[in-house]
Every structure is written in structure tokens, then in C-alpha cells.
Write a protein that binds this DNA or RNA. Structure first.
Lengths: 106, 106
DNA sequence: TTCTCATACCTAGGGATCCTAGGTTACCGA
DNA sequence: TCGGTAACCTAGGATCCCTAGGTATGAGAA
């Protein structure tokens, strides 16, 4: 996927994945790939800074743990995060309706 | 519409509007607003530079004319522009399927 | 054992994209 | 003549994502 089109939607995707349960960064990337049927294959350099930003904004919270000698930071959605996700979904809906109207003529 | 989400989709929108017939910049903006039901209200400082870029890339061509003493630059889609639009539509389709899969779980 | 692959994290800097903010010219109706 | 609308333009800034590099561990191959 050409990723310019990604811009502005990444937060929504990350929050959506984490709504299904806590996960660490690497796992979020894999889950995003899986759910999108391979369409969204985000580089780590994109996802990690984004997760940090979302945590800074209070939409996620994280905690470190160690599994098999490997450290992981596990993220979970906060209440404000869930609210933000609801807004993102609504915006996406309006946006995609507009896009289809102009592009496809629906 | 929060316009971050716009990023990467603007070219597709402009090409799509111009596929319905030649138009000048101001008119493209109005038509975009109309077709999207008011959702896409693009600033001139966004649209004009984009039209110039598309012309530079050979996807549009333009010509000056004067109507009621006002000069206008009328743009029309080229053959490469039509091809690019077809690609953009296909990409949009794949992208929005992916987004819906992750966001809405469809 | 050593090498490579996968897991798992990180950041600085750059490139692309869009918008803000400012400017110009011309017509028209009050 | 003054504001509103039509119509164009650009420089610079903000934002967003990616490239490219780095670190560390475990598991399996050679």
C-alpha cells in the first residue's frame, strides 16, 4: 500500500487493534497485517513512535514485561483512547462516504 | 473534515472531478464541495499548487481564457491522467477495504 | 560454535503533503 | 466607493510517515 494514503489514519488503526486487547508493538504490527489481509505492513519506524505519541496523549498506557528473556512493552487502550477511537471511526465513515461520492459517484 | 486524512488522496479527487469535464481551479473546489456534500472544502492554497503539480507530471493540461474580464486557467484530463485516475481508484478500493477490515471488522 | 533469522525495542533526520497567510486583479450590487 | 465574490498565485511552516541505522535476546542451522 502506498502509504501517503495512510497519513492521518494510523492512529485510528493502532487504537482499533488495541481495542481487541492489550498487545506489544511488534504484535500490533503483525495483527495489522493480518486483519488487513496483508494490505497494511507498517514499518517499525512508523509504529513505535506513533505508540509513544498516543501514550503521551493519554490514549494508551503501557507496562514493561519480560517473556523468554525478551523485554516487551505492552500497550492497552485507556478510556480516553476508546473515546478517541469512536471519534476516529465516525470521521472515517464520513470521509469514506465523501471519497466514494467523488471518486466512484456513489 | 480533518485534512490529515486527506493526504495522499487529493490527486485522486482532483483527477476525478476533471474526468467529468474541463474546469478551472475555483470551479474544481466548488465541485469537490458539492459532490462530497460539503465534506471536502479545500483551501485554494491546497488546490492550486496541486493542479500545478499534476500538470507538471503530465496528468493534466491547461489553457488560459478570459470570461467577463476575468482570466481563468482551464484544466483538462490527459490520457496519462485518466490512467493515473484508474490506478488511484483501484488503490482507494483496496485501501478502504483494509481500513474497514481493521476499524469496523468487516 | 558461529551464523543467521526472528523477535523486540529505539531514534534522528529527511521527504512528502497540505495548510496558513499573505498578496493580486476584476466584476457587481448596495 | 465599498464590500463581497470570483479567480489566480506563492513562500514558508506544520505534520506525518518512512528510511536507515542502532541495540539485545533466543532458536535453529551449519
Amino acid at each position: 500500500m502506498r502509504s501517503d494514503r495512510m497519513k492521518g489514519n494510523l492512529d485510528a488503526l493502532l487504537l482499533a487493534v488495541l481495542q481487541s486487547g492489550a498487545a506489544h508493538g511488534y504484535e500490533v504490527i503483525a495483527e495489522l497485517r493480518r486483519r488487513s489481509g496483508g494490505e497494511f505492513d507498517m514499518p517499525e519506524g512508523t509504529v513505535y513512535p506513533s505508540l509513544h505519541k498516543l501514550e503521551n496523549e493519554g490514549l494508551l498506557e503501557s507496562e514493561w514485561d519480560v517473556v523468554d528473556g525478551r523485554r516487551r512493552r505492552t500497550y492497552r487502550l485507556t478510556a480516553p483512547g476508546a473515546a478517541a477511537l469512536a471519534r476516529e471511526r465516525a470521521e472515517w465513515a464520513r470521509f469514506s462516504v465523501g471519497m466514494n461520492a467523488v471518486l466512484v459517484g456513489l
